[in-house]
C-alpha cells in the first residue's frame, strides 16, 4: 500500500518538484505514473525509496509512516521494496546469478535458500539458462529482465519501476509490462513510472498523471486508483 497525503517536495533551489500530492494505491494494486519529463515522476519514486524526504506532507508505505524511518532502519525498509531502474543498474562484473542474489545476500539469507529463490526468479523472467553469464553478454531486454528478477527475488510487497521500458522497443516493453502484471496478480503493489502513453493505453491500469508537480487522475485510462 502506498499513500501520499499532501506531499510537497521543494528542492534547495526553491523549485517545487511536487505540490501537495495526495493519492492512495491499495494493497495489491497496479498503477502507472505518467507525465512529461521533469514533471516529478522520479522525485515521487525517490520519496518512496527514502532517497529524498518530503518538504511537507506524509507518506505511508504498508502502514509505515516514512517520516519515522531513519538511520539504519532505512536499509531495512528498502528491503520491502523492489526497485527496477531505467538503466537496469546491474553490476557488470558479476554474473546474472550473483546480481539477482544480491538482495538476498544483503538480507542475510542462507546459501541454499538463495540458490532456490534466484532460480525461481530467473525462471519467471525466462532467463534461467543465462544465470552464469555476465550481464554485458545479454541484450538490453534481457538485462532489464535480470533487473526485474533482482527486484522481485526478495518478494517485495511494493515494486517501483522508473521508466523500465525507456530503452526497449515496443515488443520488449510489452513483455516487461506483462511480467509486472504477473507479479501484480500474486499481490505485489506496483507503481510504474513511464511516459510511454501507447503502452499505458494498451493496458488496463489506472494512471496517475503528474503535471508540473501537480497530480491529476487520468480518468481516460481506466478506473481511478482507489
Amino acid at each position: 500500500m502506498i499513500r501520499f497525503q499532501s506531499v510537497t517536495k521543494r528542492y534547495p533551489d526553491n523549485a517545487e518538484a511536487l505540490s501537495s500530492v495526495s493519492f492512495r494505491l491499495g494493497e495489491g494494486a497496479m498503477a502507472f505514473l505518467t507525465g512529461h519529463s521533469g514533471a516529478g515522476k522520479s522525485t515521487l519514486l525517490k520519496l518512496i525509496a527514502l532517497i529524498e524526504r518530503p518538504t511537507q506532507g506524509e507518506i505511508e508505505i504498508d502502514g509505515l509512516n516514512l517520516a519515522g524511518i531513519r538511520g539504519r532502519h532505512i536499509a531495512h525498509f528498502r528491503r520491502r521494496l523492489g526497485i527496477v531502474f531505467q538503466n537496469h543498474g546491474l553490476l557488470m562484473d558479476r554474473t546474472v546469478f550473483d546480481n539477482v542474489a544480491l538482495p538476498l545476500v544483503i538480507a542475510g539469507f542462507r546459501h541454499q535458500d538463495i540458490a532456490k529463490r534466484v532460480h525461481a526468479a530467473l525462471d519467471m523472467v525466462g532467463l534461467l539458462r543465462h544465470e552464469k553469464k555476465l550481464p554485458v553478454t545479454l541484450s538490453a531486454g534481457e538485462q532489464q529482465r535480470v533487473g526485474i528478477a533482482r527486484a522481485v527475488v526478495n518478494k517485495p510487497t511494493v515494486l517501483l519501476a522508473d521508466e523500465p521500458t525507456g530503452n526497449l522497443d515496443p515488443e520488449l516493453s510489452r513483455e516487461v509490462m506483462h511480467l509486472f502484471e504477473q507479479f501484480n496478480q500474486v499481490g505485489v503493489t506496483i507503481l510504474v513510472a513511464t511516459h510511454d502513453i501507447d503502452l499505458i493505453r494498451s493496458l488496463d491500469h489506472p494512471a496517475l498523471r503528474l503535471d508540473h508537480g501537480k497530480l491529476s487522475l487520468d480518468t481516460e485510462l481506466g478506473s481511478a486508483a482507489e
Binding site: 525509496a49 532517497i51 539504519r72 536499509a75 531495512h76 525498509f77 528498502r78 528491503r79 521494496l81 526497485i83 531502474f85 543498474g89 553490476l91 544480491l102 538482495p103 544483503i106 538480507a107 533482482r150 526478495n154
Partner: peptide
C-alpha cells in the same frame, strides 16, 4: 560507487 549506490537502494546497511 555505482555498486555501492545500487546496494544501498536494495537495502544494504552501511555495515554490509
Amino acid at each position: 560507487r555505482d555498486e555501492i549506490v545500487v546496494s544501498k537502494l536494495i537495502g544494504a546497511t552501511n555495515a554490509f
